[in-house]
Design a binder for these strands. Structure first.
Lengths: 148, 148
DNA sequence: CATTTTATTTGTAAAATGCAAGTATATGTT
DNA sequence: AACATATACTTGCATTTTACAAATAAAATG
């Protein structure tokens, strides 16, 4: 049987490069970490700093500084939570949302292209496989908390 | 239909965290980039600097310095190529090989655990899916060169 | 032999990282 | 209420990582 890690390594490397390349679309030019942060904020409903930092496996202090930059660049808004003023709630500004959406479209467009090399049946099988994989990874206790 | 990018994002994030966590096994303590470099050198037959840097999508100058550290720490050997002395050939030292192997076993062990939550049939389907995906990504021209 | 190309390294400055310590707010205890 | 403890986030600081530009050194080309 083939080396399973290798399959993952190749796949995730490619997807990582894709994400990286997608960080500079015309005027937009953000770092890879920043794109991950935008993605997670966009996905969640007013998450706290901690929440996002943890999902991304980032040190909270590094994360704090990254957010400071994103706020300075007008992509992210930081709002103190009324019922617990230690907590800050994160959301995207209009421009942040625009960038996140553009990025998402770009990446999905690439993935569509990749899937165009398969039959409809294969495509569905692959997608179901990845979903199953994600579920099983979430179940696993060995390493890496559930993440969402 | 579900957002395909999201499926990838979750999966690769998890695998990334796994790689990260696996970087500090008992006495061993290397960085994530270093583990990727060791992996690629191990996989290939005396690759050149360029070759590895390109696969990893790293700037060659950054890569050069990372290799310097790995050589200093006794994990990698750099040998000038006799027939073209501009080129350096990379290989793992005994200790480097040991670390790469340990890491590989650790990660495969985790992946086995993940697959233990599936039936044998599901497992094979998932693995075949990832292989197919890798092939199609290699075919795609939109973004991200073939990589191997 | 001169010029150009290729593979790698070094200078340098900026950015990212993570630990330790700090601030501010909330929670729990007496 | 008063105090200690816990939590969410920030700042200081030293280290590491990064990447552009320029340098070196060895082919390849004309």
């Amino acid at each position: 049987m083939e080396n399973i890690r290798e399959l993952f390594q190749v796949m995730t490397r490619r997807f990582g490069l894709l994400n990286k390349n997608c960080c500079s679309i015309d005027a937009v030019d953000i770092s890879l970490v920043q794109s991950h942060i935008l993605y997670e904020i966009d996905k969640r409903e007013y998450p706290s700093m901690q929440e996002v930092a943890e999902v991304l496996g980032m040190d909270i202090t590094t994360f704090s500084r990254q957010i400071q930059n994103l706020v300075k660049n007008g992509l992210v808004k930081k709002t103190p939570l009324p019922e617990d003023r230690r907590v800050y709630t994160l959301s995207l500004t209009t421009e942040g949302k625009f960038i996140a959406t553009t990025l998402d479209r770009e990446i999905n467009r690439y993935l569509d292209e990749v899937f165009s090399h398969m039959t409809e049946f294969e495509k569905e099988t692959v997608i179901r496989s990845i979903k199953l994989l994600n579920e099983c990874m979430a179940k696993s206790s060995v390493c890496c908390k559930p993440l969402f």
